[in-house]
Design a protein around this nucleic acid. Structure first.
Lengths: 185, 185
DNA sequence: TGTCTCATGTAATCCGTTACATGATTGG
DNA sequence: CCAATCATGTAACGGATTACATGAGACA
């Protein structure tokens, strides 16, 4: 049973908000959905061609660029696809894989892994704070802002959970560090 | 630049704890790493053949099954691979994708998405509680248990963050439900 | 003039799952 | 005897990334 791609869903959804070219579509997905979704050109262009053939989008060409807009059938399809339950993707957390085999690591390396995780979570929180602000000042907000903010909030909850975990894990896994001599009286 | 597969890492790591057949390897990864990792047979057998050719594992055959054990070179390779930073995988959260386009959904469908998320998080917490107990009673614990528990804890933090998010999102996104008549005095 | 961004697309390749094929052993 | 589990592997397929090819316009 072929696992259906969710690319169509992302593309139809984006076009349901605003008509775009393939290039702008990629940009929009990267910038706006970036904290929880990703598409590459190699997916987007074939997907657009396919959706057009199915009658879910229509394109109008202006000087060497094609703008795609969603059709009525496309909106119906979008609603249908949004409703059905995605099969859950197999988890693959490379960081936890490393922690799991921590007995084969020096403590330095474990420290590096935890520091890295903390840094990434903090960066994520900064990105999401910026996203919040953009949504507050943006244009599509009447209808969409509340939903977009909900996704931002999900990211924030996850990032804070990571920070909590890092702090907890530093105390449970790292032996209390002896001071290196310099800073104790 | 080919993104290197982390399958080798998972396989070498598992074999560093205990020699196993390919079949047992799959089982161990599913049962023990299941909450943050996954491998299928289609990956494991070719991977084992490859690791053997590189001299990182050795196999001994007994009646129609081959037991693989890690070599000294394999342990060095494992330590090396554990150290280098994994490039972070592109996020793809199908649930958030649906929430993001929530304006195209009926409230019922949104409720279903949130309920589903809550249920999955609770199931995850139950699974992890069982894992905790298994680790407490297991055999490999002197050296490994603390690390394994750290990965379990990461899962718990993440699952609780999801529950928090669901609760928050129910109040921010769902209009206050009028009582259906039955339960108000 | 050269570099950056806009813009479109294809081909090669990799990663991973699923399905298929095979067969022994165990337990009801 | 039949079903389930143990056990090994391969082939087909699908999904996604990366690299490649191309070219116009902006701007420094």
């Amino acid at each position: 049973m072929a696992r259906q791609s969710q690319t169509d869903l992302a593309v139809l959804g984006a076009l349901s908000i605003e008509p775009m070219t393939g290039y702008e579509l990629r940009q929009a997905i990267t910038e706006v959905l970036g904290h929880f979704w990703h598409e590459s050109f190699g997916q987007i262009y074939p997907c657009l061609a396919n959706l057009q053939q199915l009658g879910f989008v229509r394109s109008t060409s202006a000087d060497r660029s094609s703008t795609y807009r969603i059709t009525a059938a496309g909106r119906r399809e979008l609603a249908r696809r949004l409703r059905d339950e995605p099969e859950r993707q197999q988890p693959r957390n490379a960081t936890l894989l490393r922690v799991f085999f921590g007995a084969s690591l020096d403590e330095d390396d474990l420290v590096a892994i935890l520091d890295r995780t903390e840094r990434q979570a903090r960066e994520q929180l900064a990105t999401l704070a910026a996203a919040r602000e953009q949504i507050a000042n943006g244009t599509h907000n009447a209808a969409h802002g509340r939903y977009w903010l909900a996704t931002v909030s999900a990211g924030e909850h996850a990032a804070r959970a990571q920070l909590d975990w890092v702090n907890e894990t530093r105390t449970t896994l790292l032996a209390p560090q002896l001071s290196s001599g310099r800073d104790s009286p």
